[in-house]
Amino acid sequence: MVTDNYEKEISFIESVLKEAAQRLNHMKIQSIHDKTSRDLVTSSDYAIEQYIITMIQSQFPTDHILSEEMNQDTLLQERTWVLDPIDGTCNYANAIPMFGIQLALTVGSAIAAAGIMLPCLNELYLASQNGGCTLNGKKLTVKPDSINHSIVSFGDFNEERQAASKLQSQTMKRLRYQIMKEKMFGAASVDFAYLASGRTSGTFLIASHAWDILPGILIALEAGAVISDEKGRPFCFDSEIVLAANSQELIELMRQPELSC
């Protein structure tokens, strides 16, 4: 257990994500459809989402639910569960083992509890506000390293957010010869989990939807990561870009503006 705060919710997240991963690991994809020109949805997305929604409604019947496939228009209210049944569906649909199941509880303007399950690695990340972060029950902290040994991951580009996508492209180009490696995993759950577990040093993500980023933000924060928007301000729910890193120094490097000629 991560903390006494939101103990019931953390226990619920742990149980439901473990069961969802078991179901997903034994599930065959029955259908795949284009959701947008750059994204897919599968029968498994709907099945896992329906299972978790049913469990939330059973255990917390008065809470609200915001989810990627069935409840996209729910507003964040006093207690809202934020669910991404398969984060990284394109990876999942193409048998690339880099995807996750994400669930968070927001209370007012705070992320109170969260979990990320990476089924192919059998890794369960849990965190609660001011309660720390664990990986399979063991406490996590980000791993400090020097800038020239840093590995920074970048999220997907977003054709609906051209300015943010341009800034991401500029940042990738600018960091290329200052850090050790750039990575694109194709799943925000993996970006945040790898930062929290010390596999990477930072991540730059366009905040397309709440279900993509809110669970991972709490995981990373409670593991000791520094998080801001592209201007160095604290992250808020309407931030367009999320920067997360194992040090303030790397955050400053990631948000450094492109110099004009």
Results as ranks from 00 to 15, higher is better:
residue 210 A to L: 15
residue 213 I to P: 00
residue 219 I to F: 03
residue 172 M to F: 00
residue 91 N to F: 08
residue 119 P to C: 09
residue 180 M to F: 15
residue 184 M to S: 13
residue 152 V to C: 00
residue 115 G to N: 03
residue 149 H to T: 11
residue 164 A to M: 10
residue 130 N to H: 09
residue 198 G to P: 02
residue 141 T to N: 14
residue 103 L to A: 02
residue 182 E to N: 09
residue 199 R to G: 13
residue 127 A to S: 10
residue 158 N to D: 13
residue 93 A to M: 13
residue 155 G to V: 02
residue 201 S to E: 01
residue 181 K to L: 12
residue 184 M to L: 14
residue 104 A to M: 05
residue 174 R to W: 01
residue 93 A to H: 05
residue 153 S to C: 03
residue 137 G to F: 15
residue 169 S to G: 07
residue 180 M to T: 07
residue 108 G to T: 04
residue 136 N to M: 15
residue 190 V to Q: 07
residue 220 A to I: 06
residue 169 S to P: 00
residue 124 L to K: 02
residue 147 I to Q: 13
residue 137 G to E: 12
residue 141 T to A: 14
residue 121 L to C: 06
residue 146 S to V: 12
residue 214 L to C: 15
residue 114 A to C: 07
residue 212 D to S: 04
residue 126 L to D: 04
residue 211 W to M: 07
residue 191 D to Q: 08
residue 189 S to M: 04
residue 144 P to G: 02
residue 127 A to C: 08
residue 93 A to N: 14
residue 121 L to R: 14
residue 92 Y to G: 09
residue 213 I to S: 03
residue 178 Q to I: 01
residue 98 M to Q: 14
residue 214 L to W: 07
residue 117 M to Y: 13
residue 113 A to V: 09
residue 210 A to Q: 13
residue 134 T to K: 09
residue 128 S to V: 10
residue 131 G to N: 11
residue 167 L to P: 02
residue 126 L to S: 06
residue 100 G to S: 15
residue 141 T to Q: 13
residue 103 L to N: 02
residue 203 T to S: 09
residue 201 S to C: 07
residue 101 I to E: 14
residue 118 L to N: 06
residue 111 I to S: 02
residue 190 V to A: 08
residue 167 L to C: 03
residue 147 I to M: 10
residue 186 G to Y: 04
